[in-house]
Nucleic acid binder design. Sequence first.
DNA 1: TAAAGTTGGTATTTATAAATATCAACTTTT
DNA 2: AAAAGTTGATATTTATAAATACCAACTTTA
Lengths: 148, 148
Amino acid sequence: MLYEVKNYEPVYPIRTAAKLLNISVHTLRMYEKEGLILPFKKSTHHRLYSKSDIDKINCIRAAINESKISINGIKAIYSMMPCWEVIHCPIENRNKCNGFLNHSEPCWAAKGNESACTSNECRNCTVYKDYGDCGSIKNFIRTKLSSL
Amino acid sequence: MLYEVKNYEPVYPIRTAAKLLNISVHTLRMYEKEGLILPFKKSTHHRLYSKSDIDKINCIRAAINESKISINGIKAIYSMMPCWEVIHCPIENRNKCNGFLNHSEPCWAAKGNESACTSNECRNCTVYKDYGDCGSIKNFIRTKLSSL
DNA sequence: TAAAGTTGGTATTTATAAATATCAACTTTT
DNA sequence: AAAAGTTGATATTTATAAATACCAACTTTA
């Protein structure tokens, strides 16, 4: 099995994830309620976290604790990601899509989404998986604009 | 005289600006020290604020007080602005320029800047003047990418 | 010349975000 | 059957960002 695939596999129950991150179970649920993360949910509603989830949450915690960016600040930064240029959704749907229009929440948390995107599982989307910090988002914008 | 020109004219001394904004003089200096604003400085080092500065600062205060985004969060959001696509600086200079590379401060506050941009007065630059919030920055990215 | 400005510093207050800790009623896991 | 999970509250603690208020020594404005 490829390392990357293993990386994304939901394996850690919430208590284990909390221990790995050295935070409380409640804090993990809080991040989720805020729309920062999307842990895998079993049919029984139990959460499972992947290694990639742990990395992403460590990144969020660094933003909060080291960079002193508030949760609402992180949400606003995530909202800057040009998701439509990643998933290449139908142009005619974009003006109904909060991922395209909104600038206060990550696309995967934005409500009222009517674009083609809704049919997908956000957790498995590369926008969610691969753009977890300011650096990678700005890098995407930089690279994309350089092809102009 | 055109309204827009008048809008950018530095006319209010710091105490007047503070009164207009209903904040303290010290807070205004703090925003400046953080790199959020660039008031006009007379040869005598005295600050003067324009109507446009007041609007920008009101926008910053809304981000802090209503949107609950911390100052470091605002700085990170400003840093997402693709300034190089606005001023069309020489491509060969961009890899030395923190406005292009950095993702924690607004371009006008980023140190070690060696691009063509340094020769300009940031305060008079459209990047500083016209992109003071998440919405206008994301809109710029959206519009620019749509020409791909 | 009095009032308002400057830089640079420190100290304190205030507000609140972030995190933890509860609780109840219930379901799933092992 | 015990341990761990769920949702959905509320309440409290802790940490710290944001803002205010000082200080000194000095310059500029009006």
